[in-house]
Computed example of a mutant assay.
Amino acid sequence: MVSLASPIGRTDTRGSIEPILAVTASDMTRVNELILAMAGSNVELIPEIAEHLISSGGKRLRPMLTIASALAHGYDGDAHVKLAASVEFMHTATLLHDDVVDESDLRRGKKTARTIWGNQASVLVGDFLLGQAFKMMVEVGSLAALDILSTASAVNAEGEVWQLSAAKHMTTSEADYLAVVDAKTAALFSAAAEVGPVVAGAGTAEREAMRRYGRNLGLAFQLVDDVLDYDGSATDLGKNTGDDFREGKITLPVILAYEAGGEEERSFWRDAMERGRNDDEALQRAKALIRRHGALDATIARARLYGDAAHEAATSLPASPGRDALLGVVAFCIDRVS
């Protein structure tokens, strides 16, 4: 396993999710109750599939960011609960759609919904959850929050299509890949954090700080996932390790190893990623090449830079348990590869 000497190079926070769990506990109980209620339907298959994914063991990090961000700005109302539930439904819908597109069989150690109920049901239930998310956003009555989250939903969909068009093409550059991650992952992190100060009535500077915090955290989070796919475990990652390779996904460690390799190595990568020659033996060679060229360390170094940017954005907030929780999440994100 790749290791890091210390989380984000800081001494005031450690890589633990416990502070945000503690700060958001009571509100997240309400969020979870709302999620279960809004996942209900007279169509039996809808709550069955929704419950399968909702109860599959995810940390609910994105809605916790909404709750913690609102609390860090002194909010004491109820709107953040509905917005947090909306964020989780948006994320859950994306997972359902992703598993269909990626033909994934395992998520968080459990069979994906598509392997149990099929692709069509998974996509349609994902659409239902998106509809419920927007219903809750409207009920909050904040046009600013609705604008932030609806924009994130559209950007996320663009990122999915962009990733699909770039898949299996070794010509994908680091800049192109990071742009996909920005849209596909970081946009929802950013929106989840920004709606907190919005409902708290905070100013433009506070909103901008939380937007930067969430975006950089999302970029760091995805890059760490990229590393774990080649040097982690299914428990760390929430899906089968090596899935990115088997699916022909061009991620940053692959891009960096490809750029550093000679023609014979590049030919291997093209065969594996573009032509589907990606069996277990090929996966082991891919891991060896990635290590040989230091691509995992280089990817972690980039993740740390994004983590530093997220940390800096959150330190602009007044000292509070909410701010400390947000800082702790950054270190936790990076520490997943330690």
Rank of each mutant, 00 (worst) to 15 (best):
S26Y: 04
M28F: 12
S56C: 06
E158W: 06
A309K: 15
N32R: 13
A37Q: 14
G141M: 10
A193P: 10
G131N: 13
Y230I: 02
D182A: 10
E259P: 03
F245L: 07
E194G: 00
R30F: 01
E281I: 10
S122R: 05
D231C: 09
M137A: 13
E103V: 11
V199C: 10
A68C: 00
T112M: 11
A295R: 05
A183P: 04
L21I: 05
I54N: 08
I46Q: 01
D229T: 07
I334P: 03
L106Q: 12
A200F: 09
K249I: 04
A310F: 09
V87F: 04
S41Q: 06
D176T: 08
L219S: 11
I20H: 01
D127L: 14
L130E: 00
T13S: 12
G238H: 10
A157N: 05
R211N: 12
A175Q: 13
L36Q: 12
A309S: 15
V329A: 12
A187E: 11
V81A: 09
D147P: 01
H91Q: 13
T115A: 15
H97S: 05
P63F: 02
T115M: 14
A234W: 08
L326G: 01
D147W: 05
D27I: 00
G126A: 12
D244M: 05
M136N: 15
T235P: 00
D102P: 09
V43Q: 06
V81Y: 10
V161T: 05
I250V: 15
T13C: 10
V2G: 02
P19N: 04
F189M: 07
N156V: 15
T251F: 02
P318L: 10
K82E: 15
Q284H: 13
E174C: 01
G201D: 09
E18A: 13
L326T: 01
E247I: 02
A187N: 09
L71A: 05
G118K: 05
V254N: 02
Q132D: 10
S150A: 15
G242C: 03
A288E: 15
A272T: 07
K59P: 06
A295M: 06
R285S: 09
V227E: 13
A175P: 04
S86I: 06
E139C: 10
I250P: 02
V198P: 10
I116R: 12
R215E: 14
L143T: 15
G214L: 08
N156E: 14
R336V: 05
A205S: 14
